[in-house]
Each structure stands twice: as C-alpha cells, then as structure tokens.
Nucleic acid binder design. Structure first.
Lengths: 302, 302
DNA sequence: TCACAGTGATCGTTTTGAGCGATCACTGGA
DNA sequence: TCCAGTGATCGCTCAAAACGATCACTGTGA
C-alpha cells in the first residue's frame, strides 16, 4: 500500500464520482479505478458500493476515510517537520548538569529556551563532572553545565560563562551575625559552617567553601556537611549555622534568611559554564547557546 | 512522497548501513540510495550524514524517524481496520429513539453492545416517531426505537420486539392505595393521575394512558401532565398523585415508590420495538440486532 | 606508510507498473 | 425506448523503480 492509494481513495470518497475524482487528481479514470481496485484488494474488502450510476462508501470505506485523511495530513507535514528539526526548532536536547548548585539559573534558562523553541523537548540529567566529556562525545548529552572547567581538551570543546556572581554569607534573620552590614571570611571561619556534602570526586559546594578558606590560610574548626541544598537552607534557617552561597541564590531565599556581602580581596566569584562539542554542527545546540548568550549579555548590561 | 520512501528511510535509520538495509528490503543498494536522495530532496534537508565509512542520522532524520515509524504502523493497520469495519466490529452506529419511556432497556442494551463491540461508536438521538422512517431511509439513523409501530411499509422495514412488559400502578409508599395488594383501573381512574406530557404528534405516555382508560370506557376526572419522567417520579413520591408505568421500570424506582399489579383483562402490555431497513446490508446493524435478539431471548427464558 | 576491505555514489540498462485512449456494458431518467 | 453518463476493460506507452557493474572514498591494521 502506498500513500497514492489513500490520496486516490480520499478523492473518490469526496466526490463519489470516479471521473470527477480522476479529473481532480489529473489522471485518467481507468488509472484511478485500478488503484482503487488494488486498495480494495489489499484491504480484502470493498470500499465503495458502485455501479454505473451511483458510488457510495461502504462501512469499511467510511471507517477507512477518517484514518486515511489523518495519515495524509500527517504525511504532508513531514517535510516541514524535517526542516524544523534541521533548524533546531524541533527535537530533543539533553543537558548534563554537574554543578551541585545552579541557583535560579537553570530554570530560568530552560524557560527562556522553551518560550523561544516550544517544540523542542529538553531533558536534564544529573551527571558527574568527570563523565561529562565522555557523555558529550558519545552524544548522551549535547550540553553540559559545570561549575569548574576540566583541564585540557580546549580544541575539542567550547564553553560559555553563564553565571558570574560573588559569594555571599547566608544566615537566619535572628542570627547574631545578621546585625552587621558586612562580614569577613575571618568572621565566618569562627562560625558553625554548613555546606552541601561533596560527591565521589570530592567536588561540589563543600570543596569550593574549603578552598575559599584555605586560600586565606583559614581552617574553620566547625565545618559540617549536609546531604542537600534544601537541608542546608532548613538548618541555616533553624540557626544551626551559617553558610556561603553564590549571590544568584538571593532571590530564592525564604524570608527567614538574610544574606551579607563578604569582605574579601581577590577571587570570590562563583562561576557557571555551559560546555559543548566544538565540532557539533547541531543547530539545536547552537540555538540553546544563543539563548544563553543573549541572557548573559542582557544580565551583564542590566 | 510515498510510504515506500518512509519504509526505506526507516530501514536505513535502523541499520545505519545502506547495503544491509537494501538487503533487508530486498532491493539493490543503488535503488535504495536513490529513494533516500529523493526523500531528502522532498524534505529539503539532509536526513543522514554519510560517507563511505559511516552513516549517521541528522537531527532532521532523528525527528523524522519517530514520525515515519508512527505513520508506517498506522498505515499497516489500515487493512485490518477496513475489515473490522466491514464486519461491523468498528464504526459508527446511530440509534433514533422516539419512545418517551424506555426504562432501563436502552442503557442495558447499549452496555451489552459496547461490551461485545467495544470499537463501535454508538450515538443516540431523540427523534419523533413520524420522522423515523425518513431518517432510516436517508441514513440519518440506522435503527429506531419506538413504542408503537407505524402502519404500512412492511416490506421496507424489519422490526424486533425488544421489551414486552405489563403496566403497573406506581405510587408513594405512604399513599392510601399502597396498602392494597392489587389495584384495578377503576381504582386508579378515581385517583389523581399523572402522566408525561405528549409530544407534538400527541403520542407518548399520556396518550397511552388515556387509551388504556378509554378502552374500558373510563374517563379519569383528574388527569394532569408533567414535562418529564423525572418530574413525574418526584411528584408521585411527593404524594401528588399516582401513575401507570411499564413494569420494566420497577427496578429503577426509588425507595419512596411502590408498584402494584393492575387487574385488567386483555391488553395491558407495554411494548418497545427496534426498527431498521430491511435492505440495509450493514453488518453494524445486524450485529446490534443480534445483540438485541439474544437479550430478548435470554430475558424471556429467564 | 600503504594496501585493502567495505562503503555509498554513479551510470547505463532492464523491468515494473502507473497511466493513457478507446471502447464496452450497464443504469436510470426522460 | 432512447440516451446521457458512468465505471470497467483492454492493449499500449512511458516514467520511474530497480538492477548490475563499477567507481571513488574512508578508516583500519599490518
């Protein structure tokens, strides 16, 4: 069976007249009759009750007509669908996320992309930093979101800084430190510090915080890890300690929590990167990166 | 574009090898290459990234594959669908109902048919008795449900008695008449009688009741019509009067109401008929009638 | 580095079957 | 009874699907 059979069938069903249907299809009537006969043979049942004076759909024909029309419509849409996919307006895009904390960045970026490319299905998978390169190469993911860049492979991958935000101290509104306008790393080092537990590779929030202090020669005596960022928030709100988070988090903190800038010379910047294969010609990836780039520019400007 | 293109495309997409795909399709490789080229031309975009060593789906190809598979599956199901329709296992069946009261018969019959032929979509339309013949001829309905048969046209239509039930008196549990074991038409004639209002043709419940009394030379002095059967039930339950209904209704009466057999010689039988065109070859109609017939036999036997 | 196995593309030829024109047989209305 | 109009049939034509032989290219492994 071919779509031609369905096209011819639909034409006859609509005109209920072989000659006029043939005319509409720009073929001769015998050719049309033959195709209908072939279709009926393939179905194993008559589709039209016909004699030289009247043509009527049988029950089988009536049932087939709906389905045939649906199929023809979908088939007609295929080329446009392929073109849309080629231009990255449709398809599937899988992001790998290895950053323990991304703040509001990821939801906002996904929402912006969704608004611009509503037909694209975006999947987000959690993936360890070390496995990102492999996943990017194998096609498991097309874009990675990381808080720190791996060394080397500069030729193979391209990246874009999507978040750049100073760290801030976070504490409960009723915490003693909440009265000062600014705090220093020294102040924080003597507090009960909380951080999200590191992953198998020893990366993540806890590692970053340790490094911050280590760079200033500080070793906080009380340093405790919790299993998730939501646990961390709850414990900070419960005055069980304080923490340090990227400033981009400020928007999302509940009313119980306050943030303070940290007095700190030099590097205290939290950075998020998007990474993707340089040679990947996928328009899907280009479109996503384009959305990221626009957002980055806009936020830096505003 | 033809289904052949999609079949060939799917084969290549699955093997990612033109020669093996061609082998599976039992065509020569050059023929396959040509069809793929034609499909790509029709889509206006490449579907495969290919060289002499590797074949990979492009984004457009990936998107097309899902849709192509879906289309092919549906297309393959068409012949079976047509055969199902030819055998009355699928399609649309429209029933015309002109009987004011059908009791539990119609829901039960529809449910039985639905259980036996789940793929058939049954529509039920209210239609006046006088317009049934026209609707049956024009194909507006395929089967009519009537409480009285029209005269003549015995050659054109066939009918089946689907309900045959004596009339019973209906009253509230606290109604004085509810204490007797049986009632007579004479008893009822002196009561406040309620009936569902007749339609434009003067048919329906009220007409039938009037006739019942008239046949015995009775003219009930208090005879009131209400607009629907549910209003009637409510008013009877509210001890505003009594009524006479087909016995098949007994099952559906609420706890407030009781029924009594009526002492009455001769005809006091409520009858429902199914009517359909004798010449209608539709297997759908035959199947429905067959279900009705089985139910009738079973109920007469049980 | 180079031979080579294996691939998709190309080309000219063959074969299939969709389509054509002429015609027939049938139907139902005038 | 005639006749206009229809779908079916038949033999032929021709477009295009398919074929076989071959080429050019690629990545692999010796």
């Amino acid at each position: 069976m071919e779509l031609r059979h369905l096209r011819y069938f639909a034409a006859v069903a609509e005109t209920l007249n072989f000659r006029r249907a043939a005319e509409r299809l720009r073929v001769a009537q015998p050719a049309l009759s033959k195709q209908i006969r072939d279709l009926e043979h393939a179905c194993g049942t008559r589709l039209f009750d016909r004699n030289t004076k009247r043509v009527r759909l049988t029950d089988a024909g009536t049932a087939l007509l709906d389905e045939a029309r649906a199929l023809l419509t979908r088939a007609e849409a295929l080329p446009q669908l392929a073109r849309d996919a080629a231009q990255g307006r449709r398809g599937r895009l899988t992001l790998g996320n290895s950053a323990a904390l991304t703040g509001g960045f990821l939801p906002a970026a996904l929402a912006a992309f969704q608004a611009r490319f509503p037909e694209v299905e975006v999947n987000l998978v959690e993936i360890r930093l070390r496995q990102q390169q492999k996943a990017l190469r194998s096609g498991g993911i097309q874009i990675g979101i990381v808080a720190e860049l791996s060394d080397g492979e500069g030729d193979e991958f391209e990246c874009l800084r999507v978040v750049r935000s100073p760290f801030v101290a976070v504490m409960a509104r009723r915490h003693p430190l909440a009265r000062s306008r600014r705090v220093s790393l020294h102040d924080l080092a003597s507090q009960r510090l909380l951080a999200v537990a590191p992953d198998q590779d020893g990366r993540g929030h806890a590692a970053v915080l340790r490094e911050l202090f280590q760079n200033r020669g500080l070793r906080p005596p009380y340093f405790r890890t919790v299993d998730s960022s939501s646990s961390l928030m709850a414990m900070v709100a419960g005055i069980q300690g304080v923490s340090i988070l990227p400033g981009v988090y400020e928007d999302r903190l509940a009313g119980e929590l306050v943030t303070k800038p940290i007095d700190m010379a030099g590097e205290n910047t939290f950075t998020l990167w998007a990474v993707w294969q340089k040679k990947d010609p996928s328009q899907l990836v280009r479109n996503f990166v384009e959305v990221l780039r626009k957002r980055t520019v806009r936020r830096n400007a505003g």
